[in-house]
Computed example of a mutant assay.
Amino acid sequence: MGSISCPHFAIFPFLSPGHTIPLLYLSRLLRRRSVVVTLFTTAGNSPRIRASLQDIDVSIVELPFPQNIEGVPPGVENTDKLSFESSFLPFTRATEQMQESFEKALETLQPPASYVVSDSFLWWTLKSAQKIGVPRLGFFGTGNFSTTMYQILGRFRPHAGADSVDEPFSMTDFPEIQLTRNDFQPPFGDINPSGPSVEFMMDSMIALGMSNGLIVNSFYELESRYTDYWNKNLGPKA
C-alpha cells in the first residue's frame, strides 16, 4: 500500500511582528494536521521565530536581507527597529531583492512545496510560486472588514463627492456604513491618491488578484457579511 504524501506549505511572513505572529499561529495549526511546514525569514528575525516555534517541528530557512538600503539603517531586518515612518516603504521595497534567494531555496525543498503562503506585502512571491508551478495564497493580517472597505474605496470611489476630509460618505453596497476620508491611512483617503505608497499597494493587490486565495487573520462568524461580499465581488476567495 503506497504512502500518502503530506502537503508542504512554504510560509513567508513579512518582516514585522504584526504580520509574522499570525503566520506562526497558522504554522501551528497546520502542524496539528501533520502538514509539513517550512518558514522563511532572515537571520535577524530567526532567533525570535525559533524561540516561538521551539516546541513544534517546523523547518526555518534564513534568507539574506539586502544591505545598503537608502533610508533604512544598517542591520535593520524588522519594521519594529525602524525609527522613522519614512523608512517603511524603502524597507518593504527592499524585500523584492530577496526574490532570487527565495526561489533558490524554494526549488531545493524536500518534499517539494505544495503551496506558497506569503504576506500580501511580499507580492513578488507570486512570481516565485508560478515558476515552480504551485498555488500562492496571499495573507492579510487585518480582517475582512477593513480590506473590503479599502477595496471599495479604490474601486468605486464613494468619497469622490466629499468636499472635506471630515465629511461623512456612505460606502458603496453598504449604505449604513458612513466613513470619512480621514478614516483611511494617507494617502489612500485622497480623491486621487498617488505616490510610491499607492504604487506599492497596486503591486500587492494586482498580485493578490492573480493568486489562488487569501488567508485572513479573522474568523467567518465575526465578519461573515464582509467575507461573503469579498468572495462574491472582489476576490480571490478568502
Rank of each mutant, 00 (worst) to 15 (best):
S52D: 04
L179V: 07
G235Y: 05
S34A: 15
G141M: 10
V72M: 10
R48S: 12
S101N: 08
Y226T: 14
N212P: 08
L153N: 02
S3F: 12
F91V: 07
A51S: 14
P64V: 10
R48E: 11
I11D: 00
S16N: 08
P187C: 11
W123R: 00
Y220E: 11
P187Q: 09
D203S: 10
S16R: 05
Q97R: 12
K131Q: 12
D166L: 11
P90Q: 03
V117M: 11
F140Y: 14
N192K: 05
F91A: 04
A160M: 08
G75I: 02
P196S: 09
M202S: 09
T79D: 10
W124N: 02
E62V: 11
E167Y: 03
N45K: 04
L122Q: 01
Y25K: 13
L214C: 06
Q99D: 12
P13V: 00
A238F: 15
S204D: 04
D80H: 14
F88D: 04
M210V: 01
P186M: 11
Q130F: 13
L24S: 01
S52Y: 07
G154V: 03
M210A: 13
P66C: 05
F156G: 01
P64T: 06
E70D: 15
I206V: 12
I152C: 07
S218N: 08
W230Q: 04
F145Q: 08
P74T: 01
F9D: 00
F188A: 08
G2V: 15
A10Q: 02
F14Q: 00
I60W: 04
T95A: 08
G141W: 08
S170V: 03
T38W: 07
F84C: 08
N144R: 09
H159T: 03
D190W: 13
F12L: 04
P7A: 06
H159W: 13
P7F: 07
Y220T: 00
E96C: 12
S86A: 13
G141N: 11
M149W: 09
L26F: 10
V35E: 00
L214T: 09
R181Q: 06
G189C: 09
L63A: 03
L208M: 02
W123N: 02
V35L: 00
I206T: 07
S59I: 07
F219W: 05
P175E: 02
T147H: 13
L82R: 03
G189Q: 05
V165I: 14
P196Q: 05
S114T: 04
